[in-house]
Design a protein around this nucleic acid. Structure first.
Lengths: 259, 259
DNA sequence: TAGTGGTCTAGACCACATA
DNA sequence: ATGTGGTCTAGACCACTAC
């Protein structure tokens, strides 16, 4: 068993309990499981140990482990399947494909449209511009990969995007690789680079395209487009991707559920 | 005690358990609490009975009630406060004001900008156009209220919106009422009309304004704007508001967190 | 048949708020 | 001091999956 049987320390009853202190047991367990996920002890799509097993390992009750896993499941980091076990979430899973893509056709469903056709415009290694560096928590001038591509649905070019990735983690990324992989790009990132995106933030604006953008999307330069700037994070809130997209919204719309 | 002491029926062990059947106990309890919320037994902002009290009323354990309330809290229908109790959620609560408004200033915070200035353009009673009727689950031609207004932040007109409400539930709504109420419009709806919005769906597009829209927002007619069509629902997925907004995104942006 | 997660219970103790 | 929600445990049984 490669995972150390870490005994969870009780809060010393004599300690003055200063500062932030006090974290519920299940939060500590959640943290330990998270460490395993980060460390790659269990890879995306794999089964993690059963609740009973984790309870024995951490010397807590099954109920405490359950509550820890409940929170991980609520954050989409793992997926429970009754009768089978708990699995590390993956962007390759059929049910959650394109989890971060909120663009929907006005009629029908994205999955019915079939796979998007991808046209890679270029894939370069560059020095990070200041703004890109800032959003990726790099230093200005650090190496980054830049990919530009167009996604077409049903033959209609709909999304033009510019993807920026930390050069260190994505060393060796090629246009060929971006173009040939079937399925979500985020699934490829997991498989080829061991980088799993767990959440993202988007800033959305309405803009007009410049001449090049208009041509790539086959629209006039007076066609308003959605500008979607996304920063995607891996574990521990580490930013690992900046994606700047232009979406055509004449036949599609950005859909958002507010709770 | 106005709430009947409803005994929860066990699934008859002899019943053939056909069809969908089988709902966990805590889901049934959740449904019963929901009925109380819908019926207005406890109003927005009020305290609901303690877990122990509900457990006694429904003849189940406290743990089962807790799980029911956990789900209601996750859906923002109630709010728990340790040591005090569980409260019916309200749009008037300081912490969740403007829960459905995703527009943020590029620098700073909406709350720091102070209250929005509201300019009511008009407030009319109309017969519902076909599309409005469809989205509000009414019949074409049914009475609806229409409010048009401009919201300005720091003196800059930023949002132009058109609000459609079912005429029956919002009989008597006036421009004066829309303009004079301090705080979120949704809080006024709760207070004055007993209608609580619990979730919403938005469809977002990039558009260009027509002449009137451009003038009201003080932009040129070639300034791209966000078009945000929101349908807000009360309990039981009943649509109660259609709101069509145009957002300026030169100094603000629409912010979305992806999980 | 065995193992998994899902539900339900009962009881103990903790942290927080109020009187 | 009392009552609230929050945590933790232990054990029982249920539903689903696989062998």
């Amino acid at each position: 068993m490669s995972f150390p049987s870490t005994p969870v320390t009780d809060t010393p009853p004599t300690a003055p309990a200063q500062g932030p202190a006090f974290s519920p047991l299940y939060q500590q367990i959640k943290g330990l499981i998270l460490q395993g996920l980060e460390a790659g002890e269990w890879r995306p799509g794999e089964l993690i140990p059963s609740e009973m097993e984790l309870a024995a390992r951490f010397r807590v009750s099954q109920g405490t482990v359950r509550k820890a896993i409940d929170e991980l499941a609520a954050e989409n980091l793992v997926m429970r399947r009754q009768g089978k076990g708990t699995f590390v979430a993956t962007h390759a899973a059929q049910q959650v494909q394109y989890r971060f893509l909120k663009l929907q056709p006005d009629v029908g469903d994205l999955r019915e449209e079939g796979r998007a056709q991808r046209q890679i415009i270029d894939c370069k290694r560059l020095r990070a511009p200041a703004e890109v560096a800032r959003l990726l928590a790099l230093r200005s001038g650090d190496a980054v990969m830049q990919v530009r591509r167009v996604l077409a649905f049903a033959g209609v070019p709909t999304i033009l995007e510019e993807i920026w990735l930390p050069g260190q983690a994505f060393k060796g990324l090629t246009a060929e690789q971006m173009g040939s992989y079937q399925g979500p790009t985020y699934a490829m990132f997991e498989l080829e680079y061991g980088v799993r995106m767990v959440r993202a933030d988007e800033k959305i604006r309405a803009v007009l395209p410049d001449a090049e953008q208009a041509e790539l999307l086959a629209v006039s330069n007076s066609t308003p487009l959605l500008s979607v700037e996304r920063v995607a994070y891996t574990y521990n809130d580490v930013p690992m991707e900046l994606r700047r997209g232009l979406y055509r919204t004449d036949t599609h719309h950005y859909r958002n559920a507010l709770n």
